[in-house]
Amino acid sequence: MVICGADSHTVMAGALGCFASGMGSTDILALLLTGEVLLSIPGSIRIDFEGAMPEWLFGKDLALEIIRQLGEGGAVDLALEYRDGTASGLTMDSRFAIANMAVEAGATNGVFVPDDTLRGYLAERDGAAGPLPGFEAAWLVPDAGAAYVRHLRIDTGALRPLVALPGDLGRIVAAGDAEPRPVQQVFIGSCAGGRLEDLAAAARVLRGRRVAPGVRLVVTPASQAVFHACLRNGIFEVLSEAGAMITNSSCGACGGIDKGLLGAGEVCVSTSNRNFRGRMGSPDGLIYLASPLTAAAAAVTGRICDPLDVLDDRALPRRGDTRPARIAGELT
């Protein structure tokens, strides 16, 4: 299946086993008019995730690790092919976060090799209606003996939470190695970092805590479905009690549009996908990219930090666990 969208983060649909690529509005207009689009066939970079996947590691950390290794333009005109060989398996939310940032390495698209995790996700989404006939036949699967431009093996068990330092994606470091700079805003949201797994992780960190003085925490769910799930299962209640501002689900602060723009000199930790100058408001605002766990830890402490250094064990969220955050005693 081929998906083209007038948004650079269309690549996110690669988590569904599709070729999904972003382009501009004239391209899409022409595609709508003619049904055709010119694409050059990209070479492929194979990326294998291997080893244990710690509960405190998120798709965002893996997305940043890929860009740290490839470089900001390291995959221009190339496809990224992800294979989940981790012991526990990556959640779909983490896979979406990873595929979302394929474009940040310059890639044409990024695709997860379809497997039972995807099959299970789609079965749940399809419900009683069931899948479209022949849908699986349209999945992208690598040929036997496929050739690759490059092959990365990422041992997820060896990683620590990462942050991208402000300005571009050329400086990605362990969160604990970043200068512990005070922050004025934490943004947990967007297509890249506002999924249920992300908001649940933030709620587990913030339950029983308060957002640090001088910090505003803006939470923007990725979709109406995420918004409603958070209403139902108590995640919003926990976040709100901690002092978060919760917005409707839409593009917003992460694209410099509204609902939490940065002022000059402000520092923001964001779970979104771009830390470019001027991306979230003032060109003199500074944007760090990080996982929801690292972002929530920054909201609590008021500074850039490694969440594993500042959160005690009881608060460490279980990745992919989106059970109600208010179950009594769950975290104690």
Binding site: E72, G73, D168, G170, G255, G256, I257, R274, F276, R277, G278, R279, G281, P283
Partner: peptide, 11 residues
């Protein structure tokens, strides 16, 4: 690596 937000910010 000059990006689109530098070239033409969203506002």
């Amino acid at each position: 690596n000059v990006n689109t937000d530098e070239l033409h910010p969203s506002q």
